[in-house]
Design a protein around this nucleic acid. Sequence first.
DNA 1: GATTGCGCGATTTTT
DNA 2: TCGCGCAATC
Length: 776
Amino acid sequence: MQDYLVGLNPSQREAVEHLQGPLMIVAGAGSGKTKVLTTRIAHLMHNGVDAFNILALTFTNKAAAEMKERIAHILGNNEARNLYIGTFHSVFARILRAEAPKLGYPASFTIYDSDDAKSVVKGILTEMGLDDKTYKPSMVTSRISSAKNALITAEQYVADAGLQAEDAQLRRPQLGQIYLRYTQKCYKNGAMDFDDLLLKMYELLANFPEVLHKYQHKFQYLLIDEYQDTNPVQYQIAKVLAAVHENICVVGDDAQSIYSFRGATIENILQFQTDYDDVKVVKLEQNYRSTSSILNVANAIIKINKGQIPKNLWTDKAEGETIKVVRTMTDNDEGKFVADTIKEQKLRNHFANKDFAILYRTNSQSRSFEESLRRMGIAYKIYGGLSFYQRKEIKDFVAYLRLIANTRDEEALKRIINYPIRGIGKTTVEKLGVIANEQNITMFDAMQRAGEFGFKGGTSDLLKDFATMVRYFQSMLGQNNAYDVAVQVGKNTGLIKELFADRTQEGVARYENVQELLNSIKEWVESPSNDDGEVGEKTLGAYLQQITLLTDADKDTDDPDVVKLMTIHASKGLEFPVVFVAGLEETIFPSGMSINTREELEEERRLFYVAITRAKEKLWLSHANARYRYGQLVQNEPSRFIDEMPDTFVDKTYAGGASRSNTGFNNMGSAFERMHRGGFGGANTPPPVKRATEKPSYLAAPPTPKVVQHTPTENFIVAHTSDIVAGVKVEHAKFGFGVVQSIEGSSHNPVATIVFEQNGEKKIMLNYAKLSIVQG
DNA sequence: GATTGCGCGATTTTT
DNA sequence: TCGCGCAATC
């Protein structure tokens, strides 16, 4: 037996050794999925399959890099570099670069990120004279994105009666037209957005039989990771690519499908077995990650969902500690509690910072944890948020490079035409845009020929000078590499000088960021291969396409000793010894936006499942009685997910259970004490740093009044938000009868102050609360 | 053409 | 509350 087969359990081995024909690996959380995938690829190669004939697709660069590294390790030679392993987007971008002329795109086509896409939409709205409140760019781009993911082209969109009727109903009849123009504009700009990388790849395969044939025969073995997160385009591409050899291996876990809002369809994995004949199904059900307590709770949660691939995830690990549910007074207290507990766990159990993760539903929840961790002097890092390449100074610099690589890129041009200031104002840019449209030329061409279009002499010269400079950089590309050109750009435009001149703290940071960008270009130019193993081809276009597809998560190769803060979405695929899942409150988790249909709620529950299964040893779940949302202190009920957890393995005694069964919110103090008596917090709890004389404020917080439980009356009808106005008598499902005092907050998110007969004054967010108007 | 100030809106986001 | 985008201003 091969060395690499030793140490696989029977199912893992079955999956690895199944070489020919369709294979579906249902891989539960922590069941050794990556190990199986990488070993299987090594095994394929060991059995004579050429690395050049294997394609493995992932969703993140990080996952791809990890696979590649592990395969190289198993093989112990350089063969792995010939494998095609990468994200859907990066692999397709590479293929599209090679085939671009067939589609009328330049090989150095620009990839538009979501900011670029929004900016294009804004331009179209202005052109069409549409209002950006009705057609919010974020809504429009996400709608266009959904259409593309569902393989609906702009032409099909405008021709589809159903979609047109729907848009008319929703008072956005022009959406199809915007989509159409957006598509045209991207084409004219020589640009593809993220979704186009998939859609154009599909069109390439669908419309060019010789191309299809070429890749069908090149990629004889296809592996797809996280299959439950694929969308219809990805599904179709995989299907046509695999059509000849049918050596397709998909790996996924329907229980961890959490990206439906990005177009993922869980049906892809649920129906894989009907897509091919003789599908071999292997289930990886042994979990190597978590204690049995954690796993049992996770299993109990996911069982509540309907329609899953049946599986029984088990572990031979010890029971471990119970899962603790903690209730705090406010979100700030929640932060303090977590920071305190981390400090204490480090002392008691010798954990390092990097053993902890704090997971939350929304990025905005990170604030209270940041504050408390900082106060405690605990190093932390927030994952997600603005990525390096989204910073303004980086985008500006990169825009020069984009324009040099592709002068059709109008978004890049508009970004830098007057940066640094060179006297080309808004009016001039608008005029250029109009001319470009009328003459059907690019804005760049219009600039070069400024003299012909009636610009004033001075303006005309400015435009031509700018174009000449860009042309000069382009000419440099012949003899110089991307790095040399970038350095020249920094010098000639005066960008570097200008950034250097700003000696404020932020200014220095911006300068350093640009230096870092230059370094990374240098590094890229000098490294033998790209991330997906691509050798050679160190063109500027290739560089730019690559960085656009890079995210923050990809470059944290170093493993500093910090507590990690991230959304649950971002935590998928990761594991930590100690996990805190915060904000387990109704309207937060599950999100108030996702409780209207069973499907939405089930996805929230899968998200909760993902959160729980990140933990190896210890797991805390916390929720706050009240938290600041949009500047207002708002009360939230404990999440329904707390109730859904079985009492065995979960210690909820001091938490939601009590308050929900109506013993009141003010048992928090004793709860906290009990928690610290309970053997894991204990006597050794260190006093909070620098605040030894103070009690932890989550104990000192003022008690909240008891809720007098109210049973809704029979004629309880949920009223429309707009009917709730000051003076109206209302009934709340939980707080009983009361009178509306006033309405505050934005029109989109009104907050009512209501004085209840039994429970006093409360602030209620009308979008979430169920209120009935009391007649008479 | 840059600065300042008001008003409005506010999930999750592998690429 | 916080951050953004636009409009008014110099």
